[in-house]
Design a protein around this nucleic acid. Structure first.
Length: 271
DNA sequence: AAAAGCCCCTGGATGC
DNA sequence: TGCATCCAGGGGCTTT
């Protein structure tokens, strides 16, 4: 579910409320994608310094270590004082002096991993080869051009891979390519500099807009306060197979790329 | 080095 | 109503 906007919206919905809290206990439920890596007691008594985001990971800075959190495909967080008893898909309860942070994740592709610091091997394994942050100043045009020059794969899949630029998942890849007028199947290395510049802006715009709208709630996403997102209502192509293009009226096409669905307009995205 | 496939897992929608 | 099949926001790992 969660791409950069959903993860960022989630972060914004509880970061201030959990900052400064003291950890009282950590309960882990069914196994997630990776083990926590330490005994839960390791965290007890530590203070939460803040919450950052790197790509689709949330980084909870502790007084002695770091908690890496990933929502996978179906994860969502809740933070509150009265969450009630954990349900069958609540696989992590981090109880703090300011409330409980709970991960609900039916498919369990998500993860909660403890690392001694950002340079610890486990943190490096997960964060080490992530690409540039698309909403940061480091998302430089020349670097983007150079990176894409070295890729013969379809641009949609290069965006999804996350080693050039992070945070762009299946929804926003289709959306950004539509805004840039680029066909998803075009080889990354074949896109002209001018069009790469347009793609960079499209990525920035679509992600920023999605954050503003609270993310996309397709099935059941909500932020840590339980609020839904609304970006899906203004999606130009994602999930709109057969529906008229909002620009030219041509029916939107759906194809498969690397076992994921891709949506585009064959008129607005000629190449 | 890059690209392509394969999984991990549960649940909802669809079709017979 | 019951059951099989397909699909879903991700991404690390293995194999070409």
């Amino acid at each position: 579910m969660p791409e950069l906007p959903e993860v960022e919206v989630t972060r914004l919905s509880f970061a201030d409320r959990i900052a400064g809290a003291r950890i009282e206990s950590l309960r882990m439920g069914k196994p997630l994608r990776w083990p926590l890596g330490v005994e839960p007691e390791r965290l007890v008594g530590q203070q939460v310094l803040g919450v950052r985001r790197r790509g689709k990971y949330l980084l909870i800075d502790l007084s002695d270590g770091l908690l890496l959190l990933h929502l996978g495909m179906s994860g969502s967080l809740s933070f509150g004082q009265n969450l009630g008893p954990p349900g069958v898909h609540d696989h992590c309860d981090l109880r703090t002096s300011q409330g409980v942070l709970r991960l609900n994740d039916p498919r369990r592709f998500g993860a909660v991993v403890f690392a001694d610091g950002e340079n610890a091997p486990v943190a490096q394994k997960l964060l080490g080869r992530l690409g540039v942050e698309p909403l940061g100043v480091a998302f430089d045009l020349q670097q983007f051009v150079t990176a894409l020059k070295g890729r013969k794969a379809p641009i949609k899949q290069v965006l999804l891979a996350g080693d050039v630029v992070v945070g762009v998942g299946n929804i926003y890849a289709s959306e950004a390519l539509f805004l840039a007028g680029i066909r998803p199947t075009t080889r990354a290395c074949r896109i002209s500099r001018v069009r790469v510049a347009g793609l960079r802006e499209a990525i920035q715009n679509v992600l920023a807009r999605a954050v503003e709208k609270g993310g996309s709630t397709l099935r059941d996403f909500s932020n840590a306060q339980g609020e839904s997102g609304y970006f899906q209502l203004e999606a130009m192509v994602y999930g709109r197979e057969g529906a008229p293009c909002r620009v030219c009226g041509t029916p939107i096409k759906a194809i498969r790329q690397g076992q994921r669905s891709t949506f585009f307009c064959q008129v607005c995205q000629k190449s």
